[in-house]
Design a binder for these strands. Structure first.
Lengths: 230, 230
DNA sequence: CGACGGCTTGATGATCATCAAATAGGGTGG
DNA sequence: CCACCCTATTTGATGATCATCAAGCCGTCG
């Protein structure tokens, strides 16, 4: 079910060879999480950096009155738990069953001193996240409900489709509530917007968590980006 | 006016000693920018990483129809222009007169291989930005207009105030339009919200770009965070 | 002094949140 | 295997917040 975690480099289906496997195996541990299980909370000691091995994780912040903002969904190969000051600044839990590789922070620091490519890989992951977050800023700050949902579906669709197809079918691994908290809207509006997309023939929803995109190009148009260059 | 940029480490007022000065000076250049001048555009070749030396920079994305989302304001010591794929994924311009140190990407890569502390510093900057962006996610996705403006003022106020004072006075270096595009609202709503804060006695606005915070604790309450721990 | 751009204020309306109820789906125990 | 229950999702009705459209104001600069 999961990748091997011996010091023999593990071969996984979904992610390219992991750089982190270069780190001595004795300092690593695979943590398996069940549906909704928490990996760490905002404010905890940031003793580990984690790499998602399998499943889907999510990081989020919660306001005093309970409002939640999901900061991102983390797929296999993504890392989470970076910190400068020794504390986590968000919480993190599994969307479904998932497993992560726990890398002691101290070890990561030490190793990345000796092996520059480890540090470079960390920076690359962080940069990747930064850039992904920038797109999401535009979504949260400037897009309408329909554009938000279309953008969201588009990102998922592109994980499943080649560049050329006009149709894709995939499963939504997360609940409406998680989608809403990710897109900065309510579950009702998410639901209504999906229904509208369905009625307009852009998607089909054979089950609540299965999406068939009937026209990727229409979805792209509805997503609102199409950069004009600057 | 600006920091020295010889290979003698420069002493600057606003930021701690720069690590980047460890990089050979012949590979660096200080770029001076006037009000609103562009440093780079989305899609340009990411040949340089920049460190803000003086003034205030901003990075932003623009949608096809002209909607703008400001991704962040960058103060002296902050870096910008990180990229994995050799292209910038946002645009960047000066809010007022500003100067930045241009560090050739190729050189940065080379040097950070030899000197792990450079790579570590880069990662630290990226991590700092990541964490700052996470707070802003909550703002964009989950906060009301008043909470947004209060949060924004609070961040600026804390740059100017000690931890104990209840009052601070500072200048807003950016226009209403920039504030609006940063907070994901319109200039009208920004203006109205500021007026409301003024009428409620939380702030004073002696000039349009001068803010006197009369009660930091009230501002904190209005900002809506006050983490509850997890 | 006059004109321009940025800001404020006002009036109106659209979008989306909220409250409320019905329906569907998934899992459990009989 | 089926019935039932609980939760997630959809749908409906209403209202608040904030965007939009439209003037007016103010400070700045020629």
């Amino acid at each position: 079910m999961y990748a091997q975690t011996t010091n023999t480099a593990a071969v996984r289906a979904n992610a390219e060879e992991s750089v982190w496997t270069a780190i001595p195996a004795n300092g690593q541990a695979i943590v398996k999480l069940g549906h909704g299980e928490t990996l760490f909370h905002d404010g905890d000691d940031a003793d580990f950096v984690y790499e998602v091995v399998d499943g889907l994780m999510t990081s989020y912040s919660i306001l005093a009155d309970g409002r939640r903002q999901i900061l991102g969904f983390l797929f296999p190969g993504d890392i989470l738990g970076l910190s400068n000051d020794g504390f986590y600044h968000n919480s993190c839990c599994a969307v479904g069953p998932a497993s992560v590789r726990a890398i002691p922070r101290s070890m990561l620091m030490r190793v990345s001193r000796d092996r520059p490519e480890i540090g470079a890989k960390l920076l690359e992951c962080a940069t990747k996240q930064l850039i992904g977050m920038q797109n999401h800023f535009v979504l949260l700050g400037r897009k309408s409900a329909q554009e938000k949902v279309a953008s969201f579906l588009l990102v998922l669709a592109r994980r499943h489709a080649g560049d050329k197809e006009q149709t894709v079918s995939f499963r939504l691994p997360m609940s409406r509530s998680e989608i809403a908290d990710y897109l900065g809207m309510t579950i009702e509006t998410v639901s209504r917007t999906l229904t509208k997309l369905r009625i307009n023939g852009v998607i089909e929803l054979p089950q609540t968590s299965t999406v068939n995109v009937r026209s990727l190009s229409r979805l792209e148009r509805l997503a609102g980006d199409e950069d004009m260059g600057f």
